[in-house]
Amino acid sequence: MTEALSDSFALVGRQMRHIRRMPEQLLGITVMPVAFVIVFGYLFGSAMQVPGQGGYKEYIMAGIFAQVMLANITTTAVGVVNDLNNGLVDRFRALPISRSSVLIGRTVADAVLVTWTCAVMALVGFLIGWRAHNGILQTLAGFGLLLLMGFAMSWLGALIGLTLRNVETVSALSGVIMMPLAFLSNAFVPLDGLPSWLRAIAEWNPVSSVVSASRELFGNEQGATGGAFPAQHPIPTALTVLVVLLLVVVPLAGRAYQKAAAQR
């Protein structure tokens, strides 16, 4: 167990070194999300009407955070596929090390990076006027929930990467998964304008639950809340969905890793 931990730690260190080698990579994972904050907060914010005093700037932040967490699917999937195809996974699997440590190292490292992204976004959000109103603990809980989502998305990405084993396919598929999850949710627009069937789908979309839950924890504008159970109880719903997702995806990814073979 301790060995698995220290192995994972060494592998997290490996990815941190990558960043130190190529700081432009850090720029890459920071610029887009920050651009989103500015574009949505300023540009769209002037056109979007959300009830309440905070306005669209407060409404949108949790949505952009969640979208960044969703993008972890691609980040981890592509990383895993690259390791697979350049033979590193074979090398690691032929070592007498705990086989879980490679995926744990990968997902934890990606979680560290997304935490960084989150921090920069929060800072920029703060500069353009986003505030959390419920005190430090609830604010941290909100970020914790978002990062839990990022971690779960990483494992999902690892599973997808190990299954598809090809960067192009992985990018295409994660795009297809992410688009509806992000946009058929309350991340960017309140749901009350939607036709009722679409609204039901959006309310049951787990991304909506995470977004609503973090809005609640941040004390941000919720927009109109629907009557569906997840919309009424976003925090327990979000936690349950993420934990169940991890419980399902982690063993599946582990199994895929045991059998992993590069596709050539």
Partner: peptide, 25 residues
């Protein structure tokens, strides 16, 4: 094991590549 394609982490130095294996062992 040395596979068909050099299993090297391109973004680590040669030294770090070997050290990583040593640490994992």
């Amino acid at each position: 094991l040395t596979g068909q394609y050099a299993a090297v982490d391109e973004r680590l130095t040669g030294r770090e590549n070997i050290e990583l294996i040593g640490v994992l062992l």
